[in-house]
Amino acid sequence: MPTTISFLLPPIMLVASNIFMTFAWYGHLKHKGTAIALAVTLSWGIAFFEYCLAVPANRLGSAVYSTAQLKTIQEVITLLVFAGFSVFWLKESLTLNHAIGFLLIALGAAFVFRG
């Protein structure tokens, strides 16, 4: 019988893993003067920690979520983390069009969870 922690732990781990991955993919954009080889090496190192969280999150999550649901959870988390990252790390503004686009994606994701 799945417990509350079975439902909550995988998304929490996916949030943490996505923070690492967002920094791995986009964090270097704040430091464009850095050599690309260094950016790639540092990004690869950061991505290691993302995998250390994402792989177990998906393994644990597969006990209570379908694969499509896990992927959908990941994509919604990606949008939320990226939105915060863009504003707070890259100092970029999110526009109404961004919000509408993200909302439409989230609405599409909701259909994956409909019985």
Rank of each mutant, 00 (worst) to 15 (best):
P2I: 15
P2G: 15
T3Y: 07
T4G: 03
I5H: 00
I5M: 09
S6D: 14
S6V: 00
L8F: 00
L8Q: 01
P10Q: 09
P10L: 08
P11L: 09
P11A: 11
I12M: 09
M13C: 06
L14N: 06
L14D: 06
L14Y: 02
L14I: 14
V15E: 03
I19L: 10
I19M: 09
I19R: 07
F20W: 07
F20D: 02
F20S: 01
M21T: 05
M21Y: 06
T22P: 02
F23C: 05
A24K: 04
A24L: 04
W25S: 11
Y26R: 12
Y26G: 02
H28T: 04
L29I: 05
K30A: 15
K30M: 11
H31W: 15
A35W: 00
A35D: 15
A35I: 01
A35N: 12
A37P: 07
A39Y: 00
A39M: 11
V40K: 05
T41W: 01
T41V: 09
T41Q: 06
L42A: 05
L42M: 04
W44G: 14
W44M: 14
A47S: 13
A47G: 10
A47Q: 11
A47Y: 10
F48W: 10
F48I: 15
F49C: 13
E50A: 08
Y51G: 02
C52L: 15
L53W: 02
V55M: 05
P56C: 08
A57Q: 06
A57E: 02
A57H: 03
N58T: 01
R59E: 09
L60Q: 06
G61E: 03
G61K: 04
G61F: 00
S62N: 08
A63S: 14
Y65T: 10
L70H: 01
I73W: 03
Q74Y: 13
Q74C: 13
Q74F: 12
E75V: 14
V76T: 08
T78A: 03
T78C: 03
T78Y: 03
T78P: 00
T78V: 04
T78N: 10
L79R: 09
L79G: 10
V81A: 08
F82T: 13
A83K: 00
G84A: 10
G84Q: 02
G84C: 05
F85Y: 10
F85K: 05
F85A: 09
L90N: 11
K91G: 08
E92F: 04
S93A: 12
L94T: 02
T95W: 11
T95L: 13
L96F: 03
L96C: 03
N97V: 07
H98N: 13
A99E: 06
G101P: 07
F102E: 01
L107E: 04
G108L: 03
F111Q: 11
V112L: 08
